[in-house]
Design a binder for these strands. Structure first.
Length: 203
DNA sequence: CGGCTGATGATCT
DNA sequence: GATCATCAGCCGG
């Protein structure tokens, strides 16, 4: 049973920077919260990637479709997609309405609800529970239902801030893509063991 | 620890 | 029919 952290405060839309690169950097050290009947899940965001409107690896690059339309909502909305037939991944829309761009949440450091996360993820070290976008969505029970949700509106899924500041932020190329592979659009808290991938990816 | 590989289904061409 | 913003499990060092 994890102890609730009293001072996680909701972020309003005006607290979030506009623009995928700025938002991706800004979300490091912020908190993802999902309130469930069984308890509250919370985790510090430690790894993100920016996907830009003019970026061939962004799902919105070729214009809106049924799948990617949430990326065109005003910044601060959830875009959830299903990948590899198995996983969901959570993004935050990043630009004004009509511009398709977002920030992929790649990893969080679990703060609250660790038992609940394990119920979904199985017995795993705390550092592994939400280490990677698919694991994060599983641990936080994110699914297609949450696609299009306003993360800045009153609701169960939201972004927050806490006292603890972000550590040093590292930058690198993005993981697992085949287009625009050289753009430095991945951000992470340096040295944090909850950052995804092999050790060199969190230095 | 790190590298490799098969699984699995929605989406778009 | 190809592709895919991944992961668990397995094997070698």
């Amino acid at each position: 049973m994890s102890v609730p952290i009293a001072s996680i405060r909701r972020l309003r839309r005006s607290d979030l920077p506009v623009g995928a690169v700025r938002l991706a950097r800004d979300l490091i050290g912020k908190v993802l919260v999902h309130e469930l009947p069984a308890g509250r899940l919370a985790g510090r965001i430690v790894e993100t990637e920016a996907y830009l409107a003019d970026d061939a690896s962004c799902h919105a690059f070729r214009g809106p479709t049924l799948r990617n339309r949430s990326l065109f909502l005003p910044h601060g909305h959830a875009y959830v997609y299903f990948i590899y037939g198995v996983w969901f991944a959570l993004n935050v829309s990043a630009e004004p309405a009509g511009v398709g761009a977002g920030v992929l949440l790649r990893a969080v450091e679990p703060l609250e609800g660790i038992d609940l996360m394990r119920r979904r993820r199985g017995p795993a070290p705390v550092t592994d529970l939400a280490r990677g976008p698919g694991r994060l969505a599983t641990a936080f029970r994110i699914s297609r239902r949450h696609d299009g949700l306003d993360l800045c509106a009153p609701g169960r899924l939201w972004l927050g801030r806490m006292r603890r500041p972000a550590g040093r932020i590292g930058t690198s190329v993005r993981v697992g893509i085949t287009k625009e592979i050289h753009r430095p659009l991945r951000f992470y808290e340096r040295g944090n063991p909850c950052v995804s991938g092999p050790a060199r990816q969190r230095v």
